[in-house]
Structures are given as C-alpha cells and as structure tokens.
Simulated scan of single mutants.
Amino acid sequence: MSGGAVASLPEGLLDQGVWFRVEAAGTAAAVRRTAERLAAELGIPERRIADLSIVVAEAAGNLVKHADEGVLLVRPTRANGNAGVEIVVIDRGPGMADVSHALDDGHSTVGTLGIGLGAIVRQASWCDMHSVPGKGTVLVAQVWPEKAPEPAWAAGLTRPLTGEPVSGDACAAREVDGRRQVMVCDGLGHGRLAHAAAQEAVRVFHGAPAAAPAALLDTLHRTLGHTRGAAVAIAEIDPLRQVVRYAGLGNIAGTVLTPDAPRRGMVSLPGIAGHQRRQIREYDYPLAPEAVVLMHTDGVVDRWNPADYPGLLIRSPQVIAATVLRDAGTRRDDAGVLVARSS
C-alpha cells in the first residue's frame, strides 16, 4: 500500500490498481496525480479528467480531514470496449445513519466522508455508498468518458500483504456464450511469484472456451504447472434456473448470502491447482433472486455478520466487497474478495 508518489510503481501495476493509505495532504495530492495519469493512459478526454480530479480531491481530502484509517484504491474499470477510472474509498470512522442526508451539499459529519459528497455525486458518472454508525463508510465512484454503462453484476477487490508491492490474490469475471462466471485465485505464498501464478490463472480463465466450472478448473490445473500453483474456485451464476454452480481446489471460501436468511457455504476440495489434485467436483446451490455470491481467499476471515450491516446486500458488488475486505481482511496475508449478484 502506497503513501506517496507513483513514479516508482512496477510496470503494469497502475493498470491493476494502486492502494493508498491516505493520512496526509501530500498523499491526497499523490492520489489525484495517480488518477489523472491513469485516466490519460486510458484515453479519457481532458474535460472528464477534470471531473475525475474533483472527485478524487474531495474523496481523498475528506479522508485526510475526517476519517480514521482511511484508504483509497485507484484502478481502471472496463465495459463494452470502453474504459473509465474507479476509486474505492474506505474508512473506519463513526459512520453515518442517514447517507442520503450526507449527500446534500454543505452537510458535515465529523469523522466520516460527509463533506463534499454532493460534488462527488455530481462529477462522477456513477457512485454507490454504504455506511454503518460505529463501523465506517465505503464509497465507490466511477468516471467514464461518456455515459456510464450498466452497473457491474460482479466485482472483486484484492489487497497485498503489508509491505508487498503486488498481491498474490486475483479475481475475475466473464460472460461467454450466455454463461456468467467468476473466479477467485490465491497464488501459493505471496509476493511476485504468487502474483505471477494468479495472473496466469486470470489469463487462462478469460481465454478458455465456454465450459462448466469443473471443466474450467481442470483446464486451470493443467495449465498452471509451470507456476507456483494456486488455490482456485470458479462459480457460475444461473439466474434463470436460480442456481449457482461451484467448483474449487484449495482454501477459497464461497458463500451464498440472502437477506434475512442463514448464509450457505459452498464446498472447495483440498488441492493446489497446477500441482496437487485429488479430484474436481462441481456442486449446485440454490440462488434466490435477491441473493449474492461472495467468494474470498484465506486472507479474509468469516468473522463478519451480514446482519450487522443493514442494507449492505442490496448495494453494488464493489461496495459489498470493500466492506468485507475492510472488516474481515487480515494484514498478515494477501486478501481478495469477489461478489456476484444473481440479478
């Protein structure tokens, strides 16, 4: 996690996203410069880069002035052949009981992201937010060259082990031949070799022909042998049949979450994709229209309770994933969370 300028970022890291711990005005300025640089690399027009600068300056400035343990992620977002910039803003401040009131210009809630939200909403192409008193606030905003696309049905977040420049965890989503599929991968260990294994899994996942999760996982197992290996799980969301199909090797946790219903865990079998495979099996689980599928690596624990976050499960996948990463992610390992909506 960075706290300063981006001139020394490893090649390709900006395209994958950069986390900042935002505690000082100098860091807020570095975040803004990073966002502007990314937008320019993506070919976003200058007028929208100016809007992005306002969004990032407001968000980062509020973290400096009012937040506890504020962090901000800058990363590209892509859809339908277009690219935009997404920021994910997380704090552990007192939180807000009335988010809609906080969006009004001039409203201030000390210790939260309550100042400047109106400007963020006006300049961003799309934004979403969730806050719980006593826990903190998560804000996600996107700036696109033109009109924002439809909100994503799935999104993931990864964060490296403290002190590492890259994460060995990775998340991916794809739609191919009518199949909506997601993958979470945890490269063995951490650091650059784990990162390389995870990125190879993402490459193979995106390039593989349409197939069921178990067949895709077998393909990954056969192609990751030249890497360190990884724990991998793949889920396929089938809203029409109201089912999720799931196959996993290694320590990836999968859960179906439904408002006002107990969580339902999904089974990953022992193994390391690329090296150790006893068997690959696929399981089906019921998936109500209002349910979400949440998958995470072992850098995230299951100690959080959805009931403690009223209204969270109806928010965007990005906001759900960021909230879980904040409150259940550990600093002793890479951490990755993916959320997919059933509708």
Results as ranks from 00 to 15, higher is better:
A210H: 05
H101S: 13
A273E: 10
H130Y: 02
T27H: 04
H221E: 00
W19D: 05
E41D: 13
L73E: 01
V18K: 07
R159M: 06
T323L: 12
I280M: 12
L103R: 12
T34I: 06
E150S: 14
A59T: 08
D104E: 14
R78M: 07
P286L: 14
V22D: 03
L249K: 08
P262Q: 04
E41L: 13
D68I: 11
L72K: 02
D308Q: 13
D186I: 01
L73M: 11
S2Y: 11
R92C: 10
G311Q: 08
D308F: 07
L257K: 02
L13P: 06
G254N: 09
R122F: 07
A172D: 02
L216T: 04
V324H: 04
L52T: 04
V71T: 12
M96H: 08
H226F: 02
H226Q: 10
C171P: 05
A233N: 09
N80I: 02
A196V: 06
L240F: 00
G106V: 14
Q279Y: 15
V202G: 01
P259L: 05
R78I: 03
P160L: 03
T112H: 05
A30P: 08
D334C: 02
V110F: 10
V337P: 08
A212N: 07
G93T: 03
G12Y: 14
A97P: 06
P262L: 04
I280V: 15
R281H: 14
T158Y: 00
H66Q: 10
V64M: 09
V18Q: 08
A24S: 14
L287E: 13
I120W: 02
A231I: 12
G118P: 00
A154T: 10
H101E: 15
S342H: 01
S316G: 12
V232M: 09
D298C: 13
S108C: 13
M183C: 05
V232I: 09
A214F: 03
G191S: 11
M96C: 13
R122N: 09
L269S: 13
E23H: 14
P76E: 00
